[in-house]
Design a protein around this nucleic acid. Structure first.
Length: 517
RNA sequence: GGCAGCGUAGCUCAGUGGUAGAGCAGGGGAAUCAUAAUCCCUUGGUCGGGGGUUCAAAUCCCUCCGCUGCUACCA
């Protein structure tokens, strides 16, 4: 079944100058859910994440720490690898831009661009602040009465020129616009797409793609005084990981172009403008989609080191639980929007959605089966209209959820699934199996069967979001690991009466506040 | 400044011409299988202000107010 359909998706590679926070965890989580979904749906998935390890900031940080840049990145990159275990990510690869495979790939891409006449040597000139180690635009500067140029930071700037290689980005403006036109879903969400299109329409200048002012980067082939612009280096990781420069056969032929690059909104331009331009210029196919998601605030405030409110993923997982954290991040906010993380909202989701709605549904049904049906899947009789209706909504979930997954609308996926959870809870109350136990045990068995079968669907479909908790639910229904794919949804994989079931145990505990103040 | 978007119930949002919606929060009730969970009913909005088009406007047009994003080379 796998083999024909492939799905290649990537997170950004994270800059090692930072420690992982909720934003990093969020980006990779969204990808993990997609990757798990597509695998369950029968796709051959390649899910890539990794770390971006070159650049001036890394060089400086390493120097400040008194160690070599490579040693520094080895150390900090590990923080992001640790995140994989903590958050239960299912990535197939973890790339580092300091790996030989990547250096080889980037240099090959450079040569290819150069051979095609897309790169030329020029000089980069601008107002440079030695103190800030940054260039500023003319309009950002203020001029003193004596004619000195002052940066917004207050630092004095001087006019400097340095040799630099340029990429002929200006030549790609029209072809980029045509590409956006022909691929209206290339950039999501739509608001972000409009911003990119407006930016490109406003005119593109050639892009400086080499640096001579520091050393920590990949050397330009044939001119080692230059190292490559970090974004050219970083973006190339997406093809390195599928074997570039080998493009005939192998993983490149199988997986490229990528189906999705997931990015934070701050790095959209690099992915939606520069990257497709680089690729088209090299005669390679651009990716199919770039999705720019939003940012999290914390209790209504912007996350910042100075405020000291940066949340480490580890804190969330330890405080609220992994499954709960994964659920909250994708449920609370329409994916693509900015969102706010608050303790109150988190507890509401944990107790309302998970413990009360979903967890309690599973518990009340399995517990009745355990007590009244000999701890085995009950034998159903003929289905009533109400039975068919509930089963029908369960059977219809996959198609509905697929539609939302295709546009990365995770919140709607959960909305859709929870609608069925609501249907199931109403059905329990309407059918009142506890009353049927005395009046019509056969009917009670049918009702509990219908509910168990509905829960089987819920368990299978919540696997991408909450893999561990869903696995536990499926175990409670006696469904082994080979019975959890989407091909088992619908009547084909229906529970078999008489299958023995383990004693039910709560899956989503309530969050109880510490007794205090 | 320019361009774009937003402003709908206490909160988060859906609704783009035809009698104001959902979830959560608040109030009342039912039930007792279950993690005191569930189910039903319900309070609550002059849809940012003003003007206009229309038989009819949250929805179209104008204007004002407020908020946000983008306006390239640190990543």
């Amino acid at each position: 079944m796998a083999g024909s359909k492939t799905y290649y998706l990537t997170t950004p590679i994270y800059y090692v100058n930072d420690v992982p926070h909720i934003g990093h965890a969020y980006t990779t989580l969204a990808c993990d859910v997609l990757a798990r979904f597509m695998r369950l749906d029968g796709y051959d998935v390649r899910f890539l994440t990794g770390t971006d390890e070159h650049g001036q900031k890394v060089e400086k940080s390493a120097m400040a720490a008194g160690i070599a840049p490579q040693e520094f990145t080895d150390r900090v990159s590990q923080n992001f690898r640790d995140l994989v275990g903590l958050m239960n990510y299912s990535n197939d690869d973890f790339i580092r831009t300091t790996e030989p495979r990547h250096v080889k790939s980037v240099q090959a891409l450079w040569k290819r661009l150069q051979d095609r006449g897309e790169i030329y040597l020029g000089s980069y000139a601008g107002w440079y602040s030695v103190r800030d180690e940054a260039f500023y635009g003319e309009d950002e500067l203020t001029t003193t009465p004596t004619g000195r140029k002052i940066a917004p930071t207050g630092a004095e700037c001087e006019w400097v020129e340095e040799p630099s290689y340029f990429f002929r980005l200006s030549a790609w403006q029209d072809r980029l616009l045509a590409f956006y036109e022909q691929n209206p879903d290339f950039i999501l969400p739509p608001g972000k797409r409009n911003e990119v299109v407006a930016f490109v329409k406003s005119g593109l200048k050639d892009l400086s793609i080499s640096r001579t002012t520091f050393k920590w980067g990949i050397p330009v082939p044939g001119d080692e005084a230059h190292i490559m612009y970090v974004w050219l280096d970083a973006l190339t990781n997406y093809i390195t990981a599928v074997g570039y420069p080998e493009t005939e056969g192998g993983d490149y032929a199988k997986y490229w172009p990528a189906d999705l690059h997931m990015v934070g909104k701050d790095i959209l331009r690099f992915h939606a403008v520069y990257w497709p331009a680089f690729l088209m210029a090299a005669g390679l196919e651009p990716p199919k989609r770039v999705f720019a998601h939003g940012w999290w605030t914390i209790e209504g405030q912007k996350m910042s080191k100075s405020l000291g409110n940066v949340i480490a993923p580890e804190t969330l997982v330890n405080t609220y639980g992994l499954e709960q954290t994964r659920y909250f991040l994708l449920r609370e906010v329409p994916f693509g929007n900015d969102g706010d993380f608050s303790h109150r909202a988190m507890v509401n989701r944990i107790n309302g959605d998970l413990a009360n709605d979903y967890g309690n549904l599973v518990q009340r049904v399995l517990s009745m089966i355990g007590k009244n049906c000999g701890a085995a899947v009950p034998q159903p009789g003929p289905f009533t209209e109400a039975d068919e209706r509930l089963l029908g909504s369960a059977h219809g979930l996959l198609d509905a959820v697929r539609r939302e997954i295709q546009v990365q609308a995770f919140h709607k996926v959960l909305d859709t699934v929870w609608a069925v959870i609501g249907d199931a809870n109403r059905y329990v109350d309407e059918q009142a199996p506890w009353a049927l136990r005395k009046t019509d045990p056969a009917r009670m068995a049918t009702v509990l069967y219908v509910l168990a079968e509905t829960i089987r669907h819920l368990g299978i479909l919540t696997q991408p979001i909450m893999p561990a908790a869903s696995a536990r639910i499926l175990e409670l229904l006696g469904q082994g690991e080979d019975a959890r794919g989407f091909d088992r949804l619908g009547p084909a994989g229906a529970l078999v009466a008489g299958t023995p079931l383990p004693t039910p145990q709560g899956v989503f505990p309530r969050y109880v506040e510490d007794a205090k103040s």
